[in-house]
Amino acid sequence: MNSLFSSVLRACSALREFSYGKCIHGRVIKHGFDSNQILGSVLIDLYSKYGSIEEACRLFSCVDNGDVVSWTTMISSLVQAGKWSQALRIYIDMIKACVYPNEFTFVKVLPTAGFLGLQHGKVVHAHLIVFGVELNLVVKTALVHMYSKCQRMDDALREAVVAFQEMEASGVLSNNFTYLSILNACSLTLSLDLGRQIHARVIMTGLEDDLPVGNALVDMYMKCSHGAKKWLENVPRHTVA
């Protein structure tokens, strides 16, 4: 029965059938499943998507022995509602309750630190290390975004470079989005030497004629070097925005 309710509620959320979702919620309560962890998480997501954050919080408080999924869902709901401080408090309460965050939790928490300040961001980054969470590309992207929000582009660039190097070492091919991200970071930190290295990698991968990458290269050289005019003269016209 739980799996049936869960499937129907997820469908209501995806199809934006809020009224029908509330009816199913009533049946969940009638059958005494309202404190179930799985259903609680699905209901929290349903109500938060329709702006009923207060109801989502009430549902969360009713979930028995919430697991990492229900805690992360609640944090995500608060982040989507722009309630940064409240989301961070829930994250702290989660740790105090000995429910350990996973990579999905950190992807949701890091944006709150970006809005609340660097001190919070460094604490969350430290937690990433302490809890031994795998620093995959999604998590590292969230870290880069957080540091850039906190006006710490040097840290953001460092994280971007590490992610890039690990992708290269693991045989994962970098695409134009990868090069765009790191070239933009080079532009913001005026890192000409690194920008030149990335330019060389762009040529090696055959992306020198890619329009967005070409524009990012122009921007990087314009901001980092007085030799930008010479670079521009050698760039095909169709790659300049």
Rank of each mutant, 00 (worst) to 15 (best):
N65D: 08
N65Q: 08
S148A: 15
V144S: 13
V28F: 07
V162H: 03
Y179R: 02
L116Q: 03
T239D: 00
Y47D: 01
F115T: 04
T205H: 10
R89W: 14
L43I: 12
I129L: 09
G214H: 07
Y147E: 10
Y147R: 05
E17T: 00
M204W: 07
S85M: 08
A200F: 07
C224G: 07
Q151E: 14
G132N: 02
F104I: 12
G227C: 10
S170M: 08
V123S: 10
K229R: 13
D193H: 12
C57H: 09
I53M: 05
A142F: 07
V162L: 11
S13Y: 02
K140C: 09
R196K: 14
I203R: 06
S35N: 15
V63S: 02
T205M: 10
K223L: 08
V124C: 02
S7M: 14
G227F: 03
V138I: 14
L118G: 00
S225A: 09
A200V: 13
V63Y: 06
C98R: 15
E208P: 02
N65S: 10
V213P: 08
N2A: 09
K22E: 12
T72F: 01
F177P: 00
G32F: 08
C62L: 11
V79K: 08
T189I: 10
F106V: 02
G206E: 11
L78R: 06
M146F: 05
K229W: 13
A241I: 00
T205Y: 05
G214I: 03
V133P: 11
S7Q: 13
S52P: 00
L217E: 03
K108P: 00
E55F: 03
L15F: 07
Y20R: 08
G195V: 13
A56S: 10
N176H: 11
L194C: 03
H120M: 01
V172P: 03
Q119T: 06
Q119W: 00
D45K: 08
A241D: 15
H120T: 00
M167A: 09
